Amino acid sequence: MMIVEMDKMSAPSSRERAQRLLDNVIELEKKRRKSAQTQVPSDPNIWPQLRENYEAIILEDYAFSEKHGIEFALWQLHYKRIEELRAYFSAALTSASSKSSEGGKGSARPDRITKCRGVCRMVGILLSY
């Protein structure tokens, strides 16, 4: 009986686990924002890590997630990713069209446009370009 009580005391509560996950989300968001400000593509692993952490917070402690607006943050995460991919796609198209209008060899990086289109299709984004 005494061993069980000690185990309960040493194990973190669901609120503490949710708080640790939220702290991790905050750090990952700082990295993502920093790369966006420097216009460097963010680490592609950040997006799935953020999503997994948000989902884990919701499953770990729903009241905590409600208090901190985690469901809305998860929605915003997906929207930010879509916007980032649209921006890269638009930049690739602009770069390709400016190279061809300057009398270059045509599209400077057709592979970049193809890759952007593939990624956008993969995440189910409908682009109107």
Rank of each mutant, 00 (worst) to 15 (best):
S13Y: 04
R15V: 09
R15D: 09
R17N: 03
A18W: 02
Q19I: 07
L21I: 05
D23G: 13
D23P: 04
E29P: 04
E29D: 12
K30Q: 15
R32L: 15
K34Q: 15
S35C: 12
S35R: 08
S35N: 13
Q37L: 15
Q37H: 11
T38Q: 15
Q39L: 13
Q39V: 08
V40R: 12
V40F: 13
P41E: 06
P41H: 06
D43H: 08
N45H: 10
N45T: 10
N45A: 12
N45V: 05
P48H: 08
P48C: 07
R51A: 10
Y54F: 13
E55C: 04
A56H: 03
I57Y: 00
I57F: 01
D61I: 00
D61P: 00
A63V: 06
A63I: 09
F64S: 01
S65T: 02
E66I: 08
K67L: 01
K67I: 00
I70K: 00
F72G: 09
F72C: 10
F72S: 12
L77V: 07
I82P: 00
E84P: 00
E84N: 08
E84Y: 09
R86D: 05
Y88P: 01
S90P: 00
A91L: 11
L93G: 01
A96F: 02
S97V: 05
S97Y: 03
